[in-house]
Design a protein around this nucleic acid. Structure first.
Lengths: 220, 220
DNA sequence: AGGAATATACCACGAACGTGCTATGCAAGA
DNA sequence: TCTTGCATAGCACGTTCGTGGTATATTCCT
């Protein structure tokens, strides 16, 4: 098969990228690679979503710029996934931005490529997602892990005692003071006092504020 | 420098692994690699923690089996990090276990190696963590990403309307009904009705239960 | 034109909450 | 020995909550 003779078995790849030069370069690269076909290259999420809603040929992979005008890449991921959940999305970015990585992955991106990657590594990344992997360089992997840790470790405990933590954990189950008192075999007044002290230590004065703070700062 | 002449500038690496054969193989591999020194190889976390508490020469890297008898690798990570926060920990496992990966990374592991990796890839992984990266093969990276998604996408929103979501978001800041009414320029009674409806949709009947559910199921 | 969904608004009342106090017993540490 | 911290317990009182109703206006869909 010559490089110019694309067929239906080729893996369909779309590009969404606002830089015309980079977009064209990518498109050429893909179309010159055996087994891949890029028939659509858009400059915005909006355009590509319109096409997506009106075509029967959904792409297997979308290379998606993260820093687009209008609808951002992050928002785009969610929309694309709504229409075609099985499409793999690989984010493209010039910035090595922690928060963007995090949000993109949470939103459903399969992986991540820094712009300026070699043509070979772009092709390799696409093959990776198609085989169930996730293209990430080791430094991005490191950041992902850091975010994991951040997600699970701040636990500043505000000097709560063991008993107070225990009661806090019962509060977040939705129990009221009387129920907690019965569960712990102590007086209602005791629980009242403990909760009073917890409120003071966490500087809150409503049940909602307390529970929210407990979750946000991972006290539970 | 010959392979047998280790010096103080070598990167100190410990091994914690209960399989004697694998432990010795690893130790030999490291000591034969230029720039690395493995002076300690333990069969349990307990043993290595005792050594760690009594030595001035903390390891730069620990290769830690995840499936140990006694204290598990996951628990071990936490203990090691308490004593020596700057030590990098690379988990070793025969199983490609999603939950273990998750827990290990949350606990502070820098990376992950499947047992049976080639000697070269072990050395490379160590170099990666030392240079600030995170060794993960692409399939594990994929799983990490899946967990990210899982963390952020349950979104069964219980049929909450936009207005109800807005009020829910104010509730989790700790505001009470009156304050929310003032903030949204509507009557107290209106907010009362909305909250009543939210309670019904989420099947809760206390403020604490509501806020907890909102956090747990990421409605906010 | 009719119906469903949504946002708005009001009332009433018992239950629960938040907060100000005081006070005792016990264990650990200075 | 004396202090400090913690868990326990109680009381009072005004505030807020949760829940049972009813009702109107608007918007959207068929």
């Amino acid at each position: 098969m010559s490089k110019e003779e694309k067929n239906l078995e080729d893996v369909s790849i779309w590009i969404v990228e606002d830089n015309p030069h980079f977009r064209q370069t990518m498109k050429n690269l893909l179309n010159q690679s055996e087994g891949f076909a890029c028939n659509f290259a858009f400059s915005s999420c909006e355009d590509s979503l319109i096409e997506m809603e009106n075509t029967a040929e959904l792409p297997a992979v979308i290379l998606l710029d993260i820093g687009l005008e209008g609808m951002s890449g992050i928002e785009g991921i969610i929309k694309f996934k709504e229409i075609s959940p099985s499409t793999h999305i690989i984010m493209l970015t010039i910035y090595d931005d922690k928060n963007s990585v995090f949000e993109a992955l949470c939103a459903g991106a399969s992986g991540y490529l820094i712009k300026g990657s070699t043509p070979e590594s772009v092709i390799e990344a696409i093959k990776e997602v198609l085989s169930g992997g996730a293209p990430m360089n080791m430094h991005i992997a490191k950041k992902v892990i850091e975010m994991f840790k951040q997600l699970n470790t701040p636990r500043s405990n505000y000097g709560l005692t063991a008993r107070e933590k225990e009661i806090l954990n019962l509060l977040v189950t939705g129990m009221n003071k009387k129920q907690i008192a019965e569960k712990l075999f102590v007086s209602f007044h005791t629980i009242n006092t403990h909760i009073k002290n917890i409120y003071e230590k966490l500087h809150v004065n409503t049940r909602g504020g307390l529970v929210a703070k407990a979750f946000r700062e991972r006290l539970i």
